[in-house]
Write a protein that binds this DNA or RNA. Structure first.
Lengths: 183, 183
DNA sequence: CATTAGGTTCAAAATTTATTGAACAAACTA
DNA sequence: TAGTTTGTTCAATAAATTTTGAACCTAATG
């Protein structure tokens, strides 16, 4: 944690292609994602995909740009793909994959967060069933919190749905296709 | 991680007062909070305060119920107090503190989450300034995400504000007062 | 004023999580 | 088919986080 890229000052390493500024931005995004609970390496991969000129990078480019091991890249990408934050495309006749952000990745993340709120409200309902009447203030504030969580859940779902309808997912990926996907 | 309380089966320890069922509920709340990024011990303290009959517990009661060290309790409580999730009261003439949940604690937590969304939208604006026009699809989906994040921020703030006005904070804590607070 | 109650602090130990490197594998390529 | 590219897997290591225990502190109490 705390730094991956900041130490490579004037970018003497010929394999690191992005600018000083961008590397700091990757780091900042990495830190932010880390604070949201993402693993450090995966957090930087997200940042890198976001700032890279091309918007899509190969496994090797990611590895060299971040200066981390092959297995760290592999595991980070697996995680991000399982979270539906990242996808990959292949060029016809090439085995190599180009990894990129999913345009709709954040929607899933937000939806998971929303479901978390609802799950907590369920736990709180269970708590209420176990509480007795001797602490009416606490019981009432738990009841109110359940109400807020359910309201937030409903509001968020509606907001995301409206946004999703305003910006429907593009039916066709640009220029290249998804490979037959064994995952 | 993974268990504090589940091993103490039929509650043979005379210092552990709450029921089997409640101890499992504490554990469940603990796990949930842990997955949200809270430290394990603090996560259980939250759970314990939520299910305990009295709604307020002493330092010693927390320690004995969770079976953890004094310093773990102290550090957990400090953390939770700094996060405004927990507060304490004292009885006149007694040094001992009674710790309890803040009725408005979750509001702060939710507000912090909401501000996180806004912060990420700011980072994304910075990302856009560093991107060139060669990847219009990616640039557009970032722009759309910024829009969603800002919309969510606004919507959530309004929702929480409405809820807060519907349930204004109680002006007077029940029965006892806060001590002169050196924090 | 010596002792106890009710904690806090912090370095060391234990635990958890993240990263690496070595071994392996599948698909191309010569 | 031998070698290379493009990865994956997993046990070992490194790093970060959590918990503990010992020492310490301060307010009450005898």
């Amino acid at each position: 944690m705390e730094q991956f890229l900041t130490d490579c000052k004037p970018c003497t390493d010929p394999h690191r292609m992005i600018s000083e500024q961008k590397r700091h931005l990757v780091e900042r995004i990495g830190l932010f994602n880390e604070h949201q609970g993402m693993q450090p390496a995966a957090a930087r991969v997200m940042g890198l995909l976001l700032v890279s000129e091309e918007g899509q990078l190969t496994f090797e480019e990611i590895q060299q740009e971040l200066g981390i091991s092959k297995s760290a890249v592999s595991q980070s990408l697996s995680l991000l793909i399982s979270q539906r934050q990242v996808e990959y495309i292949t060029l016809p006749g090439q085995r190599k994959r180009y990894f990129r952000l999913r345009a709709d990745g954040w929607r899933f993340h937000i939806e998971d967060t929303i479901e978390g709120a609802l799950e907590y409200s369920k736990i709180l309902r269970e708590v209420l069933r176990h509480r007795d009447a001797r602490t009416p203030e606490l019981n009432q504030s738990i009841t109110q919190l359940i109400g807020l969580l359910e309201l937030l859940h409903k509001t968020l779902k509606e907001t995301v749905k409206a946004w999703q309808e305003a910006y429907p997912p593009e039916p066709v990926p640009p220029a290249v296709q998804n490979p037959a996907d064994v995952w």
